[in-house]
Design a protein around this nucleic acid. Structure first.
Lengths: 223, 223
DNA sequence: CGCCCTGTTGCTTTTATCGCACAAAAATGT
DNA sequence: ACATTTTTGTGCGATAAAAGCAACAGGGCG
């Protein structure tokens, strides 16, 4: 496997910078990447020219180019999903998410919707763009359940495959329960829709709605 | 000014890929960058490891990592906005909000602040994370007013564009009045800051403070 | 069957990158 | 206010990393 060291460093830098909420000095960045400061300077300069980072004084932080990039990430799927998610969120009174598999072991929530009418001061901590492992959370499990049964899979996955939906509690956040159903996107990856809520709800009925949403999205992405 | 050629190429590749809505073959990419195919392959491999692109069959397209970056960018913007919002809330005695455009017709409030000293039992029904249409509420109108004049726009929008701030009453909640000013996040996203109050206030002075806050936030995301 | 395209690898050559070393600026202490 | 330490920012030559070329296996197509 041949990967480019220079580019790799640049991207790692971008990642580090994006993680630093209140910016990073060039020296800090150099330390994190374990490279000479001079290199870090050149990396930052290059990233800056592409508007991916911006410098204010001595601190480097994520730039608007990141937002631009994301705007172009509109797979037709994400666009099409938005109204479905909104409907699902409103119907169940919980936050709804669309999650895409990334590679074989991770997934990323790429779109979400909150119910229009709130049932209290709920704030669900499942955030768009935060990668996590497939094993954690209902959305990831639902994606795993799409694959043909595999020897060492957890029982959770087998159950999800059989029932058509996955359910987890507290795996991604204390006190939160998630229900999700997976579906295939023809071109490539697995995906799942699900809801996350902090309160009690009728699992049967929510599961049905989630599965319904999944099949709608599946047919959308086939067409 | 010293910029890294390798990284630069990688980022240009990322840009090209992000522009091709339905993907790019590696050969096309190599042509666009005017490099050997072998190099393009190595670039794609590296980008792929960082989740910024994904390959489906022969086509390369923008990957979920872009969404990750966007999420973090938004997170940072919200953090940076918090003190400004707090100051605005305290100065005006009203609840202050930061709202981001979401697509072309909706927006979502992503951060808020309440005045530290209360002027009564204020409860503003404008909730973080709840999407609504751009036409409703001062924050949305302010974002619409950023766009070049468009034929069938409401008079409200034209007024907002001219004066630099929007003002609405009761659109999102009975008896609530909102004042907001928009600003550009130089990529794609429109944003606005505003206040919402249930009581009477001096529009002129509040508008000035809101505009001030908007320009501060704009410079934060530009610099 | 022959042709064109994709994806990958090995190797040579060059050139872009590394990392030292140094200047400038800021922060710190007295 | 001044001296000193720490941190920031930038040339420059040596070197290692990437460019560029060529070759090759598989696959799809006429």
């Amino acid at each position: 496997m041949a990967t480019l060291q220079g580019l790799d460093r640049g991207l790692r830098a971008l990642n580090s910078i994006s993680l630093a909420a209140d910016g990073l000095t060039v020296a800090d960045l150099a330390a994190q990447l374990d490279v000479d400061r001079a290199i870090a300077y050149r990396i930052v300069q290059t990233l800056e020219e592409h508007a991916l980072v911006s410098r204010q004084g001595k601190r480097v932080r994520l730039g608007a180019g990141a937002a631009t990039l994301a705007g172009r990430f509109q797979h037709q799927l994400v666009l099409a999903a938005q109204p479905v998610l909104q409907e699902l969120a409103d119907a169940t009174g919980a936050s709804a998410f669309l999650t895409l598999a990334h590679g074989a072991r991770e997934c990323v929530p790429v779109a979400g919707a909150q119910p229009t009418v709130h049932h209290g001061p709920v704030q669900v901590g499942y955030r768009i763009g935060v990668r996590h492992r497939l094993e954690r959370g209902a959305n990831g499990v639902a994606i795993l359940a799409l694959q043909p049964p595999w020897p060492e899979e957890s029982e959770e996955i087998a159950r999800a495959r059989e029932s058509g939906y996955s359910i987890t509690s507290g795996q991604l956040q204390q006190g939160a329960t998630g229900v999700a159903a997976g579906f295939e996107v023809p071109g490539a990856v697995g995906a799942s829709v699900g809801v996350v809520a902090m309160h009690e709800f009728d699992v049967e009925s929510v599961a049905a709605q989630v599965k319904e949403a999944a099949s709608r999205l599946a047919s959308l992405s086939n067409a």
